[in-house]
Computed example of a mutant assay.
Amino acid sequence: MLKRLLIVLVCTSLLATMIPTQVMAKPQVSARNAILIEQSTGRVLYEKAANDKHLIASITKIMTAILAVESGKLDDTVTVSRNAAYTEGSSIYLKEGDKMKLRDLVYGLMLRSGNDAAVAIAEYVGGSVGGFTYLMNDKAAWLGMNNSQFDNPHGLDSKTHYSTAYDMALLMRYAMKNDIFKEITGSTSYKAENRKYAWGNKNKLLTRYYDYSTGGKTGYTRAAGRTLVSTAEKDGMELIVVTLDAPDDWKDHMRLFEWGFDNYEMTKVQNKGMETFKIKGTDETESGFFNKDIVVPLTKDERDQLQIQTYFKKEQNNQTVNDVIGKKVFKLDNELVAEASIYRESEQENEEKNQTFVSDMLQIFQQLVGVGNPNG
């Protein structure tokens, strides 16, 4: 009986080692380069050759659009030049001398991918196409798009016009923080003031294929292949996908979105408010204030594996409410996922202290001068 029990235990142990652990299999995509990131944190959830430089075609127009929006001139009227009207490639059929609001041109740029609109925007906002490309590259450098270079506002092929999946995700993440841009890219159709018909959006994820789609930009040239940037939101999570040279880009994006939504959940790792910490190796404590909740996308396994470390600066004189006295960092496999600054105290607590101080001083003053003293 004992021998039989031992055999059963050994077999059970062997079977346990043979059963594969649940692995979060990454989706297969047709794209040469691809990336999936979460909007609020910028955390990379999936990547495939995401830092390789490549032609990007019309997804270039995301940069053109956000610069136009940020110019503050959307209600200005633009006169279309001959240079803009005769730009090759996709078009909204502008004619030399046409007058159109800059806002309408941006919609034509994003929904119909008008190269003529791109040049008209560039000439008006930047003074010239050359001046506008300077603004594009300046913005790219500011955003940390370190493997990108722009030399036109529309994305027609050029050896000196390129980007990466990662850099374009950075750009889209930045652009989607702008409410006007977000409204434009998320529009299924738009009718300009001087057009008799509405423009339909070429982004089929938004108009036909994917219920959670919130925007994006398509692109194609023979040399670049199909390029696509798209966004989606589900259950409070906003995701961005970029694919370059992807023959089956619609399905690539839907696969990546569904994989992200199925496996990750926005998880609060730090609450806003005061917190007291015990200083390691001592009996001392330190208190600090977090000015916002910290929420990051995590898998179920990652929630248990999250490494949390807290650091405090050495005590300094004359610290004020806005002084950062430390930080809390959140890591997975020693890779930074998020961090939160720790402040001396909240603005509210500081204001309450000031009010208490003023009240105490007023009471002392009244006692000294005898105000309110019934025996005076």
Rank of each mutant, 00 (worst) to 15 (best):
L2W: 13
L5T: 13
V8Y: 14
S13L: 15
S13M: 15
T17A: 15
I19C: 12
P20R: 08
M24W: 09
A31R: 01
R32I: 01
S40R: 06
K48V: 08
D52T: 11
K53S: 10
L55F: 04
L55M: 06
S58W: 02
A65C: 10
E70P: 01
T77K: 11
T77R: 08
R82A: 14
N83S: 15
A84T: 08
Y86S: 13
E88F: 11
E88Y: 12
Y93K: 14
M100C: 10
L102M: 10
Y107I: 05
G108Y: 01
G108S: 10
R112W: 09
D116T: 05
V125P: 03
G126H: 00
G130N: 09
Y134D: 09
Y134E: 10
A140S: 07
S148G: 09
P153F: 13
L156T: 07
L156M: 15
H161I: 09
I180Q: 00
E183D: 10
T185M: 01
K191L: 08
A198P: 10
G200D: 14
K204F: 05
R208F: 06
Y210M: 07
Y210N: 04
Y212S: 12
G215P: 06
V229G: 00
A232C: 08
E233R: 10
G236H: 08
T243N: 06
T243Y: 01
D245E: 09
D249N: 05
D252A: 03
R255K: 15
L256R: 00
F261M: 03
N263F: 02
Y264R: 04
M274Y: 15
D283H: 03
E284I: 08
E284S: 12
E286L: 13
S287W: 12
F290M: 10
E302H: 01
L306P: 02
Q307G: 03
Q316C: 06
N318D: 11
T320Q: 14
T320W: 07
N322G: 14
D323I: 07
K327R: 13
F330M: 05
L336D: 00
Q348W: 10
E352G: 07
F357Q: 12
V358D: 12
L362V: 12
Q363E: 15
Q366H: 13
V369Q: 11
N373G: 05
